[in-house]
Design a protein around this nucleic acid. Structure first.
Length: 315
DNA sequence: GGTTATGCAACCAAGGCCTC
DNA sequence: GAGGCCTTGGTTGCATAACC
């Protein structure tokens, strides 16, 4: 698969005034939260607010009056996880960093899959705990997929070469849906999709719209067991009728944008703007949470914040 | 009692956060 | 923005609990 042309569309970065309006609402939320916070939190939040307010406001230009040319040098970015400007620039930056490595690997290991791991929706007060549980469970799962941890009579050998895990949270009202998107590069295919289960049906449960491979069904169960802290043994595995909704599909070009996109959108699943209550839940639950993590051959690819190069190219 | 799975600590690196 | 500190998370190996 030639991925050289897979980039973030320039249009995504151009709606600056729209981003500013969005950020004004977020700034209002920060202001309100500062008023409700302790003295120690106030300072941090105030710094965040100041950076957010200045984001993309200063443009550094070289001006050549005679030639009537203004040469863009750089802009200032706040890197706040809720900032509309920075979310998009960071997405572009991550793609620039990871895509060349992914492409190199795909030349040798052509099996690229996108795995989505979900857990049941949780109320806001449980989101922080849920994200921690998911991280711990994925850490364990990764050991099984890499063959570093084994469960007797349960072959999870998928020919793992490398993976990139990203966290995304969608939400509606007080219902939060954290899930992982994982790029898997494997040495072998995952077999025919010929099985059905509860997750195969369409939303009206009239017909089966999705088939699963044997490995997907095994992953669904493994994921549920690890998340719920059930001992991973063949007998427990067999007792489990169904796991959590998870799927592994061939990675298509368009899926890379999805993989590298931001942790939270500014709007809810029913297309409403993030409320103050939702903002409060998310800012607490996502504090110091890693959005992206590489494994195997993708381990140690730095997701640094030196995004100026990307900004230079795109502006 | 032997085997297998898990928990945990130690170490290290990545990434978030804070200060200047 | 740079640099340093702090927190989180991956890895490894060993002790122990659980299982058969």
């Amino acid at each position: 698969m030639d991925l050289r042309h897979v980039t973030v569309p320039k249009e995504m970065l151009t709606s600056i005034s729209e981003n500013r309006r969005y950020n004004e609402v977020i700034a209002g939320y920060y202001n309100r939260l500062i008023g409700e916070s302790s003295v120690s939190q106030k300072k941090t939040l105030s710094n965040n607010l100041e950076s957010l307010n200045d984001c993309n406001r200063l443009w550094f230009l070289d001006q050549y009056s005679k030639a009537k040319v203004k040469d863009f040098k750089k802009t200032n970015l706040c890197k706040d996880k809720f900032c509309s400007n920075c979310k998009k620039v960071k997405q572009a930056s991550r793609m620039a960093r990871f895509m060349p490595v992914i492409q190199e690997q795909l030349k040798v290991h052509p099996n690229a899959y996108q795995m989505v791991l979900t857990v049941p929706n949780v109320p806001g007060k449980e989101l922080e705990k849920t994200i921690k549980k998911m991280s711990k469970a994925y850490s364990m799962m990764n050991q099984y997929l890499q063959g570093k941890r084994k469960a007797k009579d349960l072959p999870f050998d998928i020919g793992f070469v490398g993976g990139i895990r990203t966290l995304e949270i969608t939400y509606k009202g007080d219902s939060y849906h954290p899930h992982f998107h994982v790029l898997l590069v494997l040495d072998k295919g995952l077999g025919e999709k010929k099985y059905t289960n509860t997750y195969s049906h369409d939303r009206y449960k009239r017909r089966e719209t999705r088939y699963f491979s044997e490995m997907e069904i095994m992953i669904q169960k493994l994921w549920k067991m690890l998340y719920e802290g059930v001992r991973v043994t063949k007998s427990n595995f067999d007792l489990l009728e169904i796991g959590y909704s998870s799927m592994i599909d061939q990675m298509n070009e368009g899926d890379y944008l999805e993989l590298f996109k931001y942790m939270v959108k500014g709007e809810t699943e029913d297309k409403k703007f993030m409320s103050y209550e939702q903002f409060k839940i998310l800012i607490v639950a996502l504090k110091s949470v890693r959005q992206i993590q590489g494994y195997g051959v993708f381990h140690s690819i730095q997701d640094d914040d030196s995004i100026d190069d990307m900004v230079d190219k795109l502006y």
